[in-house]
Design a binder for these strands. Structure first.
Lengths: 251, 251
DNA sequence: AATGGACGTTGCATATATTGCAACGCGCCT
DNA sequence: AGGCGCGTTGCAATATATGCAACGTCCATT
């Protein structure tokens, strides 16, 4: 909509790939070097871009600060955090909190497993949307008109033989998940990792976030993990109650 | 330099404070609503801004993703991380990694204390530059021509009675730190928290990053914490060796 | 030591993209 | 119903971003 801003913002993902010099940036934007220079300068003034000692540009520090600050203002995260920690203390496994946003599901909080074997994930990173238990819950609650086109637009990478293979299977799974009110990922993303997840609902009853407990096979079997389901649901419900303003936090 | 981009980017910190609607954004930018709308739309297309269900804008998902990617490109972080974890396993306290960038010092990694009492800090957040042990190391190594003006430009907030009071005291402290090759913060930021820090150097001998161990008085006294100094320095040196390509990581 | 090239930077004229305005549509509350 | 607040759109005016060409600097090559 705004060409100048559009160009400037296009620089960011470009630099996310790695540092680049002025010429490279100008080329990839398809603009004159002087134009690229001025855009980079503006980004620089705002701290989004940093000029390292070899004169090349890379993403800047303020980006972290902004992301961090924004995180803190996601109030669902604030409300949920103590509950996630509590659950982690009780069961010991990795606990995740995720939300849906613009065709993506992303982790916004995480409490690490207290077992030595941990799973790989990062808050802020988009989730494997076709297999993750939290993603199933979040997508299952989308309006039909949004869910179907999205499902058909997605890629269905076969992380493992148990990964969701295609849109049809995914939509079927989502229907099951919506019905039962919880979801699992049994080795669909990484062969040896299982997850159980439950939805967190806002005042309007819509799914506002989802949380999960994950553990590798070497620590607990899938069956054992499933015995935690009631605990996970209780925790999610507690968060829902607080988030929707029905209950107050206990101190 | 570029008015349009400048305005657009000014929206980001504004939204970091919390969600805002179109009118608020326009007011704070000092532009017409229609202008603000178009800027927000462009930011939206790039995923930096998200429109929540109540129509208000807040920072979007791609910002998190970008911040993450930017982090990953800081290769010093990658190299240092296992060392930080190792040190944390040995001493149990909170371990921080920080770098200097554009008149700021910021944490880029952190391993949480294993004691129940933890200190408050966030990666991505600018550090209390006048008192933090890591900041002293990073600034102490700046060229004189850069260090002095910076020191004089800084504010010297009195977090505690032991905070660095002014530029003169700070520059003196930096000279000591540069000489001895390590730094401390003994209750200068928060009354009950002490830190010991050591520098990480690149191939050219310049300080590329700094790491610290922090613990509250209730866990260990300042004297006890200081006994960890050799360990901290060994860890920092190990990272330096690997970062500068002199040694190879042991696996 | 001299030369060539690559790269970043600046001033300037042009044209294009951005701006503010005014009007419209929509939902909400009185 | 009617008025108000808010977001949205088309348009004309002009402020603004753009590409160009020239310059400076650093580095590698002859």
């Amino acid at each position: 909509m705004s060409q100048t801003v559009d160009r400037a913002l296009s620089i960011l993902p470009l630099l996310a790939e790695g540092p680049a010099d002025l010429g490279q940036v100008a080329d990839r934007l398809g603009v004159h070097k002087s134009t690229a220079l001025r855009l980079l300068r503006t980004l620089h003034e705002h701290g989004l871009v940093y000029r390292q000692s070899d004169q090349r540009y890379r993403l800047g520090a303020r980006l972290f600060a902004l992301a961090q600050e924004a995180m803190e203002n996601l109030d669902i995260r604030e409300i949920a955090h103590p509950h996630l920690v509590g659950l982690n203390e009780r069961c010991g496994h990795t606990v995740h909190l995720a939300v849906y946003e613009e065709n993506e599901v992303l982790y916004i909080d995480k409490v690490e497993s207290r077992y030595p074997v941990r799973m790989y994930s990062r808050i802020g990173k988009p989730v494997a949307i076709t297999v993750a238990a939290v993603a199933k819950l979040l997508l299952a609650d989308l309006p039909e008109a949004e869910r179907r086109p999205l499902a058909e637009k997605l890629d269905y990478p076969l992380y493992t033989p148990r990964s969701t293979p295609n849109a049809a299977a995914f939509l079927k799974e989502l229907a099951v998940v919506r019905e039962q009110g919880w979801a699992t990922d049994l080795g669909g993303h990484e062969e040896s990792i299982n997850c159980v997840a439950a939805p967190i609902r806002g005042a309007d009853g819509r799914v506002a976030a989802a949380m999960s407990v994950s553990a590798p096979n070497v620590v607990v079997t899938a069956e054992e993990l499933l015995t935690l389901l009631p605990q996970v649901r209780r925790t999610a419900d507690a968060i829902s109650g607080e988030y929707s303003g029905r209950t107050v936090p206990r101190d």
